[in-house]
């Protein structure tokens, strides 16, 4: 029977190679705009002005990428994004691990009620709080600061939810044994529990980093000085005067440059990202 199971194709329909072929065609459609972008980025701006169909012809050049290195503000924005996304990641990991541990494995008054309230937080869209949040940050002079860009990410309930699930999955016997040795609650968390959740930390960390890196809405509203733009807002701001000042090729090379780090992170940590995204949405 078991052997039978293995040879059995899980879904009769998917053994149909036509479906795979259609998926292949779709993937070409999917990649065509990206190929076009890369093509534009390696063309001379003057040549593109005469007609963008020159993308399909030689010569190609790296001049746009060299221009990024020399002239543009992209590096500053890149650095800002790095600071904001890293800060958020660290903050979310600390807060979510502590809270997830307590929600999953400790008893304290109002535990259930608080957890339900936090879950409710998942349903609050950013748009519902954005105007009040903008005013609050104004009172404390937090706009155009790194702290101001980082803080809103820390309230996300997603990390707490994810870490609670991970901590629940650890067998009870492990910390009960430690308790027999009279270890303090924090020691158990720090020395025994936390190391066990390292894969989960990686998953949540990568997910939070990507989220922070890609955030557009809050930095757009909070960062009004060009020096404090994150990469998303910065690229968007040079997008608005499309083509007229810097040239299509230069703009395209900026886009390629800005998406490279994310794609590299994705290629390395694909499994973690997919776990975080699908685990959080379904359960």
């Amino acid at each position: 029977m078991a052997a039978n199971n293995k040879t059995y194709k899980p879904d009769a329909l998917t053994t149909n190679p036509t479906l795979l072929w259609i998926a292949g065609v779709l993937s070409v459609v999917m990649m065509a705009p990206v190929a076009w972008l890369v093509g534009l980025s390696i063309k001379n701006n003057q040549e593109l002005m005469l007609g963008t169909d020159s993308v399909f012809r030689l010569p190609y050049t790296a001049v746009n990428y060299l221009n990024i290195l020399q002239t543009s503000r992209v590096f500053g924005w890149f650095f800002n994004s790095l600071v904001v996304a890293s800060g958020q990641t660290l903050g979310v990991l600390v807060l979510s691990s502590l809270a997830g541990y307590a929600f999953a494995r400790l008893e304290f008054p109002f535990r259930r009620t608080l957890f339900v309230i936090v879950l409710f937080g998942l349903a609050v869209p950013e748009q519902a709080v954005i105007i009040a949040r903008h005013q609050m940050f104004n009172w404390f002079g937090l706009h155009n600061t790194y702290l101001g860009l980082m803080l809103p990410g820390l309230s996300s309930a997603f990390g707490v939810f994810l870490m609670t699930q991970f901590f629940r999955a650890i067998p009870k016997e492990i910390d009960e044994a430690a308790l027999l040795d009279n270890a303090s609650q924090f020691r158990i968390f720090w020395k025994i529990m936390l190391p066990l959740t390292l894969p989960a930390q990686a998953t949540l960390g990568i997910f939070t980093f990507l989220h922070g890196w890609n955030d557009y809405w809050w930095p757009l509203i909070s960062a009004t000085k060009k020096d404090m733009f994150t990469l998303t807002v910065g690229i968007a701001s040079s997008q608005t005067n499309f083509a007229q000042s810097e040239g299509l090729g230069f703009l395209a090379s900026q886009a390629v440059f800005a998406s490279l780090p994310v794609l590299v992170v994705y290629l390395i940590f694909q499994r973690h990202i997919v776990t975080a995204v699908s685990g959080g949405a379904v359960k």
């Binding site: 890196w213 890609n214 557009y216 998303t232 997008q239 395209a252 886009a255 800005a258 994310v262 992170v265």
Partner: peptide, 9 residues
Amino acid sequence: VLSVTIVTL
């Protein structure tokens, strides 16, 4: 995994 800015560009 791309940001909205890149996608729209």
